[in-house]
Write a protein that binds this DNA or RNA. Structure first.
Length: 400
DNA sequence: GTCAATTCACATGAAAGAGACCACGGTCTAGTG
DNA sequence: CTAGACCGTGGTCTCTTTCATGTGAATTGACGA
């Protein structure tokens, strides 16, 4: 008891490492965005007609994760909005992240979310989709307005729900008299548009913009700028920024990852009562981020998912040689027996393995072994140091 | 030695079902005046 | 008479199963040199 109060007092007396933590959080939109001037100008140019109440062209942004697509579009739209507010223009910006599960990942839910933005409360389920459309359209069309709809991670949406939604959304303009709707689509997948209905394609990507990855130096700039706001003087030791940037650039110039790395490093240092962040903290941070990410996925997925993952861990642990779907399925089945769960079909497990691959927890590559068939070659996609930890968590949650 | 056919072990697709969740409208019930 | 409880119907959504079709190269076997 006494110990704890002492601890809390100590905690409060200690000089905090962070001056402002939110600067490093992923949803923070900084005042000025480094190395993205061109894109900002281009987007601003494309969206500017909105301020004359003319419908801007639909816009499509491509680029890998952490290249600033979201930040840039949020920045530009918020600027437009503030000008619009100043001039009392009826412009509305709606930002939807289509990747958010159970929020905006189906046609129905997109409409519900949109409706919510207009103060309309529609139940999350239970109504026919076209009914919801009608309610929404009627409500929206009652006043003059210009709407800019930002659909982030739009590729996820289309992959799950098909491109019909996009078609419907682009058609809204024809059905509404008083409202103009422009769409900004944001996609991580550069090839995404190839598989989309040509009609949608032509109307949606009237303008296109590619965000190229940052290089290590640019990431350093970004980190330095944010670190200046986030920490006090002298807290970030020599080489920390450089190393964070190098780690992130190793992937494909993912600035978000670099920022997260820096933030978690700082958190670790803080927890250790250090008054500075040093290079060693970064390695720990990297491992922690990875572990948390996997654990997060694992905990939110159904049991069968967890069992499959556990089977993969076990098989990969035992065998040095490459591991295939069939092996996993056998082990998985035996686990099911132990836990008393009805095993899924191989078809389903195959899909689950594919999903795990998508999540980056494993690396699965389809290979052909010639006469000996075609299968997935499975390797672990996470550092082996994190695995024992995850494995025990898994086993606990499964009572194995 | 060359070349096409074969063959394996799954991958990949499509469709459809089970079960959870929910809204809506109608009917029933009990309480009220 | 009316508010609330309780159905049945019809809708979405996720996770699965079932059935069907696809696939890439090692292997096989026929063929000719």
């Amino acid at each position: 008891m006494v110990e704890l109060t002492k601890f809390f007092h100590g905690y409060l007396e200690r000089e905090p490492l962070f001056k402002s933590k939110k600067v490093l959080q992923s949803n923070y939109t900084p005042e000025n965005i480094a190395h993205r001037d061109d894109q900002i100008k281009t987007i601003a140019g494309i969206l500017a007609p909105a301020l004359r109440m003319e419908k801007p062209s639909n816009l499509f942004l491509y680029g890998k994760t952490g290249t600033g697509k979201t930040v840039v579009s949020k920045y530009v739209t918020s600027q437009i909005l503030s000008v619009a507010n100043e001039k009392k223009l009826p412009i509305q910006i709606i930002y939807l992240n289509c990747k958010l599960k159970r929020v905006a990942d189906t046609e129905y839910r997109i409409i519900v979310q949109l409706a919510k933005e207009f103060g309309l409360d529609i139940p999350a389920t239970g109504l026919p989709t076209d009914e919801v459309y009608k309610i929404f359209l009627k409500h929206i069309d009652s006043e003059n307005k210009l709407i800019i709809l930002v659909l982030d991670e739009i590729d996820q949406l289309v992959k799950k729900a098909g491109d019909e939604i996009l078609y419907n959304l682009t058609r809204i303009n024809f059905e509404l008299k008083n409202v103009e709707l422009s769409i900004i689509g944001i996609s991580n997948d550069l090839l995404f548009m190839d598989g989309v209905d040509p009609r949608v394609k032509s109307s949606l990507s009237e303008e296109e913009l590619v965000f190229s990855p940052y290089n290590a130096l640019q990431i350093q700039d970004i980190l330095r700028e944010r670190a200046k706001e986030a920490f006090g003087e002298g807290i970030v030791r020599e080489g920390v920024i450089e190393k964070c940037a190098a780690y992130a650039a190793r992937e494909h110039g993912d600035a978000r990852r670099a920022l997260e790395l820096l933030r978690v490093s700082a958190e670790i240092a803080e927890r250790k009562n250090k008054s500075f962040i040093c290079v060693e903290n970064i390695d720990e941070a990297e491992e922690k981020i990875e572990r948390d990410r996997v654990l997060d996925v694992v905990n939110t997925q159904p049991k069968q998912f967890q069992l499959t993952l556990l089977a993969i861990f076990d098989v990969c642990n035992l065998a040095e040689s490459p591991v295939f779907t069939g092996d996993i399925y056998e082990i998985y089945k035996s686990f099911c027996g132990k836990v008393g769960l009805k095993p899924l079909t191989q078809r389903r497990v195959s899909d689950i393995i594919a999903e795990l691959d998508m999540l980056g927890i494993i690396n699965a590559r389809v290979i052909s072994k010639g006469r000996y068939g075609r299968t997935r070659e499975i390797k672990l996609g996470i550092p082996s140091s994190t695995i024992p930890n995850i494995r025990t968590t898994l086993k606990e949650s499964l009572n194995l």
